[in-house]
Write a protein that binds this DNA or RNA. Sequence first.
DNA 1: GTTAGCATGTAAGGAGTTACATGATTTT
DNA 2: AAAATCATGTAACTCCTTACATGCTAAC
Lengths: 186, 186
Amino acid sequence: MLEMAVLGLLKARPMHGYELKKHLSDELGFFRSFSYGSLYPTLKRLEATGAVQTEHPKDETTRRKNVYRVTPRGEALLDELLEESGAVATEGREAFMLRLAFFRYVKPETRRRLLEGRRGYTQERLTKLRDSMKRLRERMDAYSLQLMNYRVDEAEKDIRWLDDLLENERRLGSEALPTRPAPEGS
Amino acid sequence: MLEMAVLGLLKARPMHGYELKKHLSDELGFFRSFSYGSLYPTLKRLEATGAVQTEHPKDETTRRKNVYRVTPRGEALLDELLEESGAVATEGREAFMLRLAFFRYVKPETRRRLLEGRRGYTQERLTKLRDSMKRLRERMDAYSLQLMNYRVDEAEKDIRWLDDLLENERRLGSEALPTRPAPEGS
DNA sequence: GTTAGCATGTAAGGAGTTACATGATTTT
DNA sequence: AAAATCATGTAACTCCTTACATGCTAAC
């Protein structure tokens, strides 16, 4: 997850670690904002494998503040990471959301595949939830029932949302990719 | 999380590991259904610390199928785990949901504290999300915007839901705890 | 009698966190 | 000149997963 987030953010604009950390919470609307204890090692690792680069100038003038940029190798890695629909349950929701945040970097067909994959998973989950409710309703206390209803509502809402997103993809077809919400003024 | 889930489920009814695993997905409407690779070691650990007990009969008749039950020591541990409102962000959503599933074991005042804590956290998050949107709207692509809107809607919905739950708590006051949705027929 | 599912476990590893440690730069 | 905050890093640990390994029991 962190690798994907880092590469995705750096692709838009080179940054140093501290800056990156803020954007992880802010820009991605992120619930979980990774700690420095994982962020810096991740950057090191990505650098070691050649996915990102930094100009740490050996001369004594500008030390500290390591600005990282994505290399072609890193772009390829990001592509791979974004395309995995895998492990939908474990990785779950947040991994999907993260991919969505970087959808502009994803091929239209892959976008559709990811959206449909997520929809399928959610639909399946919804079915299971309803099954459980039918089987257990009598034996459940009020709080568990609240929880179940919450989950069902959420799943239903997610499906409608995913359908909207899919509908949008279809409308766009293979025409121009919308990387901005429409220039308007500028 | 797993410890809390295990203790909570075993409190309702003694079970063996395999059975427990099913209830973790089913009964709790759980997205994440822990693997055996963590479930069994957790049971061992809880047994080692005296939080659960199992009658593994040393005589050769009935081997396999270790039925675990919660001890008083385990009940105390569960109480502790349920009362922590802590680490709201990291632990997050699912930990809260899990506590909600076991709310019938929680003192009314603690229930209110947990609900209010969660509400406060969600409200704060909502504020931050709206801030981010104001600051970044122009620079965001359509997908990020979708994501942000989703998050905002979700937070708003959560707050309404939490308010409902709080209202219910107030209505019940200190009168009878509702462990069942009302007998009706029986 | 063999396939499917019940039942339990271990070892290695992944992906993060917390706590600690340090030092430069900006603000007050 | 002190306090805040920018900026980077490491070590130990937590909590879980995957993959492996084993054997019983029920159903077909």
